[in-house]
Nucleic acid binder design. Structure first.
Length: 841
RNA sequence: GGGGGCGUGGCGGAAUUGGUAGACGCGCUCGAUUCAAAAUCGAGUGGCAUAGCCGUGAGGGUUCGAGUCCCUCCGCCCCUACCA
């Protein structure tokens, strides 16, 4: 019987469904394993082969863990609120719900074909009202904790979309999805005080089993820095300017103060003589797009203008000029800095530009030539003279605190989280506003606050969010009967993904968001796999919510995701008529190589040359491979195997269809060992080499379930299959063990072979085979023989051969004795079971 | 500018962590099978001036021995960007 992958896959997928094979176990006596994929946004374009790479990896782990006796929670859902569906709905004149439903069906169908062992009874979608009811409930928890507030903040306003975008959705002053321009505008928005949790978000990273790079990115994002607030009196005013600095020790080197152009004191302190210049500068800066202000490098020319006002340095009473400059950011620290040009590169550049004085206060550099930021003894610094940076900081902070001129403080780069969007397709806030401006929460038993039906999803003519169109919905009352209007902003897409891992625990309950007992059993997530693009935001937001829930006593772990793993992206060759990849892309079918192996390509139709470049697989680059095609041509099993075989899971790798053909051949070979093979026998067979290959494969695959190094595990399985193919006789017992370690990777073929071997127990819960150290032992060791560090041959010796015997045998080699002839042996290196090296001259 | 990662055959990648570089797979070559092709099977496959020499981006160092450790340089990728 031939290996007909389509028949085999259809058969076993139907069987699994009929048997409910991947239902989450309910007994609580066994150890648990919660393995989770970062759930996708179901886009309209469907999946390419890059998307399921992480899902295949987690499926291998899930299937293996089940066989190892764990209760496995393995689930999939949809991050289904979001702007693209809303925009698509607008284009098609349909409801976003319809678009979302359609996209989910496409995604689910594609995933189903891969034989991924999800418990589909736990499927969830964040846009489902039975789900977002609880998202609103969690919002209330945060609100009750005093973590939500409204603020008039500068936001990324996209006029074309009529909505506010989050910082991460804006790049180079444009919306990343559509390229529409984005501008800054002050608007009243809901904010979360994530900064309150800054220290804990930072500290608790320590105990997580996450890639070091991701932890580092989170640390930098939080950006904790210790320093001091220092207050400067403004000469002739009652106002004081507060600055933040990490180098209070350089205070005696301060020769001017700089405010952000937006700083609130600018208007008050600017002198009449400077008023026009200041106004002009502020207008110029205000006209610059966010892009212009943020893409400037640190070494960009410095601009600024003096206010004409003077500040008083608290430590020495010196009067120093107050400037404004755009290199001081309004949003960080206090929006004001004191400048010590001698020991800060930006201040130095600024002082040089405007010929401001530079005063050395830390010795060790040449401040006439450049800013010196290194350590050294302080000079010109009164009570700090002679101290190095650390001690000088302590001394000056003590002085400032004593004289009520400042204090030591900690500053975060992390900002509070802008949590509202002017969109339709998101969670409504469970809040109403009374006529006198009071914000009242919607009681828990009245959740969910459902999205109203609208006839259009655009903002209103007067610029209010789409929900404002639902007049009847907006007009409501408070629980105590006062008239009120509903909040018309919706939550950002991050909301749903902040807690979905908890909902999977009790996905269908209308009684609670999750069952506390079940939560105690399943949490934390043991393995969380997804792309590195979520390194900061999703993971930080989810950790924040989780910590709030922890503080409310609603979850029992401090952190949601114990182990995190980032799978690498899949790349593919792309063809573009511009060498930098910015021109027109062509499909592989539209181009041809000018001569085989030439590496030069042209467009078939026009003969125009095209440039090849390996790029991330994406629809816009015309270089995607559809998993459905792979399943049809080579089978889901071959594709799964190839994705795991391409290279280390964390690395990017280039997709090649021929690679799938290779893993398919491997499956064919395995098939032939079991199906209609006359060499397959019942009794035990003594064949140490094949047995060693088998046990080596068992060991490697078993370990790979922890290390996720599947590429080498698969290669060990290939070695076994090659060895078994060459053997004169094959034991049924070997194949039974082999099929079980193959099962997580290629589950459909494995099921078929398992059945063919006459096994009746379900393979998905069959016992995982164990390797036998005895079987891994070899009878003889091949020693490498070196003379003066160069390879001169090998010798086979018994495992327990003594040093002298091995060295004797090495010297007896003709290739060795020839070289030793007439020389004196200086040293003999012997590495047991590895090599001998004879040093002679 | 800062931070992180990486450089190994024609290609993807292995290498017990300082001990036979190139496992396994792709591709390629030859052979078997076939009227022929595909598929399949078998053999081979780092380079070269082939008793040997050279080879892990380049150069230096440590060592009996370096892909692996240390310095200098070159190149590529990712993240970040005036954060005081």
């Amino acid at each position: 019987m031939r290996y007909d992958h389509q028949a085999v896959e259809a058969k076993w997928q139907a069987r699994w469904e009929a048997d409910d094979a991947f239902a989450t176990p309910t007994d609580r006596t066994r150890p648990k394993y919660y393995v989770l994929d970062m759930f996708p946004y179901p886009s309209g374009s469907g999946l390419h082969v890059g998307h399921p790479k992480g899902y295949v990896a987690t499926d291998v782990v899930a299937r293996a863990k089940r066989m190892m006796g764990f209760n496995v929670l393995r689930v999939m859902g949809w991050d289904s609120f979001g702007l693209p569906a809303e925009r698509q709905a607008d284009r098609e004149g349909k409801h976003p719900r319809e678009i979302t439903k359609r996209n989910i069906a496409t995604f689910k169908g594609q995933l189903a074909r891969l034989g991924l062992s999800y418990d589909w009874s736990r499927e969830l979608a964040t846009s489902d009202e039975r789900y977002y009811r609880w998202t609103q409930w969690i919002f209330l928890k945060l609100y009750e904790q005093g973590l939500a507030y409204q603020a008039d903040v500068p936001v990324n306003w996209c006029p074309a979309l009529g909505t506010v975008l989050s910082n991460e959705e804006v790049k180079d002053g444009k919306y990343v999805e559509t390229g529409d321009p984005v501008e800054r505008r002050n608007m009243k928005q809901w904010m979360f005080k994530i900064t309150v949790y800054g220290d804990r978000l930072l500290e608790d990273l320590e105990d997580l089993d996450w890639p070091e790079g991701i932890k580092q990115m989170q640390r930098e994002w939080i950006g904790r820095s210790e320093g001091a607030h220092i207050r400067f009196d403004v000469d002739g005013h009652d106002e004081r300017i507060e600055v933040f600095t990490t180098r209070p020790d350089t205070l005696f080197g301060c020769t001017y103060v700089v405010l952000a152009p937006e700083h609130e004191l600018v208007d008050q302190i600017t002198t009449d003589a400077q008023r026009a210049a200041v106004a002009e500068y502020r207008t110029a800066v205000g006209a610059m797009s966010e892009r212009d202000r943020t893409t400037q490098a640190a070494d960009a020319p410095k601009t600024g203008v003096a206010t004409g006002a003077w500040a008083v340095n608290p430590v020495n009473g010196e009067k120093i000029p107050i400037w404004i400059a755009d290199y001081v950011l309004a949003g960080y620290g206090t929006g004001a800095v004191f400048a010590c040009p001698a020991h800060d590169e930006r201040d130095y550049a600024f002082a040089k530009t405007f010929e401001l004085p530079i005063r050395e206060v830390v010795s060790g550099g040449d401040v006439a030539a450049a800013a010196y930021t290194g350590d050294g003894a302080h000079v010109n610094s009164s009570f700090m003279d002679g101290l190095h940076i650390d001690d000088a900081k302590k001394a000056v902070i003590a002085w400032l605190e004593e004289h009520d001129a400042g204090a030591g403080t900690v500053q975060y780069r992390l900002r509070d989280w802008l949590f509202s969007r002017q969109r339709y397709w998101g969670e409504p806030f469970p809040l109403v506003h009374t006529e006198d401006g009071e914000v009242v929460t919607v009681p828990e038993d009245q959740l969910p606050v459902r999205l109203p039906e609208l006839d259009a999803y655009k903002p209103t003519a007067d610029g209010r969010p789409p929900l404002a169109r639902a007049e009847d919905w907006v007009q409501t009352t408070t629980p105590d009967g006062r008239p009120a209007v509903r909040e018309t902003n919706t939550m950002p897409q991050w909301a749903g993904s902040c807690w979905y891992y908890l909902r999977f625990i009790s996905p269908t309950s209308d009684e609670f968001a999750w069952d506390p007992d079940e939560e105690r059993y399943w949490m934390p997530v043991d393995l969380y796999v997804g792309g590195a693009e979520h390194a900061v935001l999703h993971l930080l937001y989810a950790r924040f919510w989780h910590k709030v829930l922890y503080d409310c006593g609603l979850v029992n772990t401090k952190e949601p995701f114990q182990r995190l793993f980032n799978q690498g992206m899949i790349h593919a060759m792309s063809f573009n008529d511009s060498p930098d990849g910015r021109g027109k892309f062509y499909y592989p079918s539209q181009v041809e190589e000018t001569a085989q192996g030439s590496g030069e390509w042209r467009v078939k139709e026009t003969g125009e040359p095209v440039f090849t470049k390996v790029m991330k697989m994406s629809k816009s680059r015309y270089n995607v491979t559809n998993p459905d095609d792979m399943c049809r041509d080579h089978g889901a099993d071959a594709m799964r195997l190839y994705e795991m075989f391409m290279g280390p899971l964390e690395d990017g790798a280039m997709w090649e269809d021929s690679g799938v053909a290779g893993t398919r051949r491997f499956l064919e070979k395995a098939w032939r060992l079991v199906v209609d093979n006359p060499k397959l026998v019942d009794g035990p067979i003594a064949n140490p080499d094949v047995e060693r290959a088998l046990h080596s494969a068992i060991r490697k695959v078993t370990k790979s379930v922890e290390t996720l190094r599947f590429n080498t595990a698969i290669s060990e399985m290939m070695i076994f299959v090659n060895a078994a193919t060459k053997a004169k006789a094959i034991s049924r017992e070997w194949m039974s063990a082999f099929v079980r370690i193959l099962a997580p990777f290629a589950p459909h073929v494995a099921e078929e072979l398992w059945e063919t071997l006459g096994q009746h127990e379900a393979l998905v819960s069959a016992a995982w085979p164990e390797w036998d150290e005895e079987k891994l032992k070899v009878a003889a060791i091949t020693y490498a023989v070196q003379v003066n560090g160069k390879m001169r041959g090998t010798i086979d010796m018994p495992v327990d051969a003594a040093k002298d015997a091995v060295i004797g045998a090495a010297k007896a080699l003709e290739s060795v004795s020839r070289l030793l002839d007439g020389k004196t042996i200086r040293r003999e290196i012997f590495v047991p079971k590895r090599l001998v090296n004879i040093v002679a001259n």
